[in-house]
Design a protein around this nucleic acid. Structure first.
Length: 282
DNA sequence: CCACGATCCTGCTAGC
DNA sequence: TGCTAGCAGGATCGTG
């Protein structure tokens, strides 16, 4: 579930909440599903992070990067239903908690995940970290993600737009919700082959992607059912979605009823009027 | 390069 | 009401 805006919101929250806190010894106080920890056993992870101070938090793609000393990094990916939040000392238990990292002050970092797809990694140095992240494409909201770069990335791709934009090797951060939204905003059909786009259509898509992500961050992310921010609170972008999860409802632009189809095995919402199958001028 | 299916899990709900 | 098939913010791997 969490896509770029949700991960960004969580990172900003946790930055305020856990930087400077020191991890207790041992560094793992609860772990009931060892597979959640991808790189070590719960015991070894607990030893490796014990006594470490939280120095910085960053987001890369949909990963939350927590920097410790000597460039050690705790890295979380929440996949579909994972959440990461900070709790005060003595806070009541959260459902679906599978990993707890205690701080010396008694507060906790809790990783919850209904479906158990989420993962946590510990990388011991910059080298290990960057090697793991090397597979990822550029960040769509960074300054170096120029319109020119986007044109280059997709101009000669023959795949359908929808699965292409979900590919984190091409560009990162988009998931099912925001791809659906961005294609609607740019008036493009999800099954259009990227190579059939005219330059002006690629430009529309470029700006739609950035607009949709930026707006969602301003609204603290989209909570359809499971997503919670760094304090365990819901986002509010779900009220502003144009088409995602709005099958049978009127398009906010033209009133045509929104339909749902499957594209690349993912539920795909679109307005048949605003997103015609072929380009308008052919 | 591209499409498709299976896989990792649990919970909810549409449809019978 | 009760059951069950299918789907849900992701990503990876194998096949053709």
């Amino acid at each position: 579930m969490p896509e770029l805006p949700e991960v960004e919101t969580t990172v900003r929250d946790l930055r305020r909440l856990i930087i400077e806190r020191v991890i207790a010894d041992p560094g793992v106080s609860f772990a009931d599903w060892p597979r959640i920890i991808a790189t070590y056993s719960p015991e070894v992870l607990g030893q490796l992070i014990a006594g470490e101070k939280i120095l910085a938090l960053r987001r890369r793609a949909k990963y939350i990067l927590i920097e410790l000393s000597q460039h050690k990094h705790l890295v979380f990916h929440r996949k579909m239903t994972g959440n990461l939040f900070w709790r005060e000392p003595g806070a009541i238990a959260d459902r679906y908690t599978h990993l707890v990292i205690p701080f010396r002050d008694g507060s906790e970092l809790r990783f919850t995940d209904l479906r158990k797809f989420g993962r946590v990694y510990l990388f011991l140095n910059e080298e290990e970290l960057s090697q793991y992240l090397a597979k990822l494409g550029p960040e769509p909201l960074e300054d170096d993600f120029t319109e020119e770069l986007f044109h280059q990335l997709i101009a000669s791709r023959r795949g359908m737009l929808k699965p292409l934009l979900l590919n984190q090797g091409l560009l990162v951060g988009l998931g099912n919700i925001y791809v659906n939204e961005a294609l609607f905003v740019s008036g493009l059909h999800p099954k259009r082959s990227a190579e059939t786009l005219k330059p002006e259509e690629r430009t529309l898509l470029y700006h739609a992607i950035r607009q949709v992500l930026t707006t969602a961050i301003e609204n603290r992310g989209t909570t359809l059912s499971d997503y919670l921010d760094g304090e365990g609170q819901k986002g509010r972008n779900q009220e502003l979605l144009f088409i995602h999860n709005r099958e049978g409802k009127p398009c906010r632009n033209c009133g045509t009823l929104i339909i749902k189809i499957m594209v690349g095995q993912r539920g795909t919402y679109l307005c048949p009027n605003c997103q015609p199958k072929l380009s308008l001028a052919n």
